[in-house]
Write a protein that binds this DNA or RNA. Structure first.
Lengths: 223, 223
DNA sequence: TAATTTAATAATGTCGACATTTTAAAATTA
DNA sequence: TAATTTTAAAATGTCGACATTATTAAATTA
């Protein structure tokens, strides 16, 4: 068996991160050391090191002598995360528009085409759609050229993805939503290519906040 | 001896974070497990858990089987961090101006007064000055009401503080710089109280970028 | 019975030991 | 001597064990 170049802690970190974001664990769920050791086939040390990193990433919380828990969720936190993400995405887009060259433009056009084609297709696999959707937005902000902002963007994206998987799965799947969404994508592309920074920023912020409106409406209906 | 409410890993994390930010360790310096165990009087597990969190915070890097190192520094990274920080601070300030009430206003005035008085005083202790400086900027953005943006702000502030301690210590101490700085502080207060969001944002971004200009100039002179 | 105390069970956090790998030094070869 | 190989030393990452603390269940008391 070829030895992995990653150590056990790094591997387990990947698995745990994914499982939390995918919603395998419930918010506030207790993460028993013993159970996790069995599930991932690892010892105490690497497991606790991975959990330590998840604490720094705010996906896990811990209390002394009371162990580890998956981070809780709330409407306020959802709103805050999406709001922050919208603003950061706006910043990245602003910088990208300023610095974008011909390749940046063509990548946007290409990604937009792939997304548009798939959105119009018959049987939509949501995972594939998410891939193309993700790629399109990445194309928009690529060339923003700020590693730190990109890292922040990524970190907020992870957290919002967790909320999506926990709360929005059924809500964003319906055809109508997808269509409104798609109109915005085309508009975003046009504004980016026209280098209309202000308008593009405004739209991307609204675009990102869309799921928040949906989920809040859905919560109100339940009460 | 009363037992601390924090576990060993959390304590050691505080110490290590501080020591790295304060510049006790050099960039790219090897962090030997054995040495750290002796220095902080702890065992392997909590130490490695603390280091794991520092990895997630980008203050430490690690390579499998080659241990831990303090993160490196570069002009590009310095610029990126300060740039990102400037933008984030601008966002926080924008939100604070939108939501700020009478207490927010009065806190700014109070913090501004304390900073102005101390800046004009005879023997300036830089630590005390940093405290008052920090408080003033915090007063400006307090009430921004976004925990996530604040957290990002804090994280970037930490990293920029490390650069300041490593590179800028002597540069920002001189009287002239402090004076220019102080004019901007007054201007920031006025713009905030006038609720001139755009102008305040523009100024805070320039204000935060000041040290970058200084350090870049100083580097050019050396070559 | 309800509330409190005590006992038993389970889980956490820390330590030292050990196998594996890297690094440094010594020995060999060309 | 310079380059390569071999040997020795040091350091890392992982494991299981153990003391301490929290949690649950049983027993006691009012």
């Amino acid at each position: 068996m070829k030895k992995s170049r990653q150590n056990t802690a790094a591997q387990i970190l990947d698995s745990l991160t994914n499982d939390i974001i995918q919603g395998e664990y419930s918010p506030r769920q207790k993460l028993h050391i013993k159970t996790l050791k069995d599930r991932y086939n690892v010892g105490t040390s690497p497991l606790r090191e991975a959990l330590s990193q998840l604490i720094a990433k705010d996906l896990v919380v811990s209390e002394n002598q009371r162990g580890f828990y998956v981070s809780g969720i709330s409407i306020n936190d959802l709103t805050d995360i999406y709001q922050a993400r919208a603003k950061i995405e706006g910043l990245c887009l602003e910088m990208a528009i300023q610095k974008g060259d011909d390749y940046w433009e063509s990548n946007i056009i290409a990604a937009s085409h792939r997304l548009a084609k798939y959105t119009k297709s018959e049987n939509i696999d949501m995972d594939e759609w998410q891939n193309r959707h993700f790629s399109f937005h990445e194309a928009l902000v690529s060339g923003c050229n700020s590693p730190r902002l990109f890292q922040i963007r990524q970190s907020l994206y992870e957290k919002s993805t967790r909320y999506r998987n926990l709360w929005l799965k059924e809500n964003v799947t319906n055809f109508e939503t997808l269509q409104v969404n798609q109109n915005e994508h085309v508009a975003l592309m046009v504004l980016a290519l026209e280098r209309d920074t202000k308008a593009a920023q405004k739209l991307i912020e609204a675009h990102i906040m869309t799921p928040v409106k949906i989920i809040k409406k859905s919560f109100l209906n339940k009460v």
